[in-house]
C-alpha cells in the first residue's frame, strides 16, 4: 500500500465546484436518473455581522483506515483495494441493504436508481497508473491534493507557524 491519500485543505478551498463536476465527468454520473454525486461541496457560514466568513468543504468518501462500512457490508460488495488503500464498491455484489449507510459516520454511501450503492473510489483505476484522481487534477487552488498525508500535514503546520510569526 502506498502512503498517498486524498488530502483536503479547507483554507485553500473557494467552493468553486470544479472537483464535484470533474468527478461526475470521470465517473459518468447520471445525476438525472440516479440523483446522486460522489463529491459534494458544502458552504458553512461562521459568525455574523462584520465578522462573517464562509468556509467551503469538499467532501467524498474518506477511505477510512478502519472503515465501518467494510465491516457492515454483508455481501462482500465493499472491499479495500490493496494497491491504493481505497475502499471500493463492487456494485454487482451489492444487495442494496443500506447497512454501509447506517455504519458510515460521514453520510457517504448513496444509492442509484438500481438500488445499489455508489461512492468515490479515490480514482484507484487512475492512481494505479500514475494519474491523479479527477478532483485533484482539476482543483485550481491546490485545496485537494493526492499526496503523502503526513507531508500535507507538515506543510499545513509550516503555514500555520508562518502565520503565527506574522501575527507577532
Amino acid at each position: 500500500m502506498n502512503n498517498k491519500a486524498l488530502c483536503f485543505d479547507s483554507e485553500k478551498c473557494v467552493g468553486c465546484y470544479a472537483c464535484a463536476v470533474a468527478c461526475m465527468d470521470q465517473n459518468d454520473i447520471d445525476v438525472v436518473h440516479d440523483g446522486l454525486a460522489y463529491r459534494h461541496v458544502t458552504h458553512i457560514e461562521i459568525g455574523g455581522g462584520s465578522e462573517v466568513r464562509v468556509v467551503h468543504v469538499s467532501m467524498a468518501c474518506m477511505h477510512c483506515e478502519t472503515a465501518e462500512c467494510l465491516d457492515a457490508c454483508p455481501s462482500g460488495a465493499l472491499k479495500r483495494d490493496a494497491a491504493s488503500g481505497a475502499v471500493i464498491v463492487r456494485r454487482e455484489l451489492c444487495i442494496g441493504c443500506h447497512a454501509c449507510a447506517m455504519a458510515c459516520p460521514f453520510g457517504v454511501p448513496r444509492f442509484g436508481h438500481d438500488g445499489t450503492m455508489q461512492k468515490c473510489d479515490a480514482c484507484y483505476a487512475r492512481t494505479r497508473f500514475g494519474c491523479d484522481p479527477a478532483c485533484v487534477e482539476i482543483c485550481p487552488t491546490g485545496a485537494l491534493r493526492f499526496c503523502d498525508a503526513n507531508e500535507a500535514a507538515a506543510q499545513k503546520q509550516a503555514r500555520f507557524a508562518a502565520s503565527l510569526a506574522k501575527a507577532r
Binding site: 465546484y17 470544479a18 470533474a22 479527477a134 487534477e137 482539476i138 485550481p140
Partner: peptide
Amino acid sequence: KVAGTKEAPHSHGTLCSKGA
C-alpha cells in the same frame, strides 16, 4: 472525459465547474 491542459500557461491544467 475532459481535463485542463497542463502546459497551458494561463490555466495551469485546471478548469472551472463549467468547463468540467
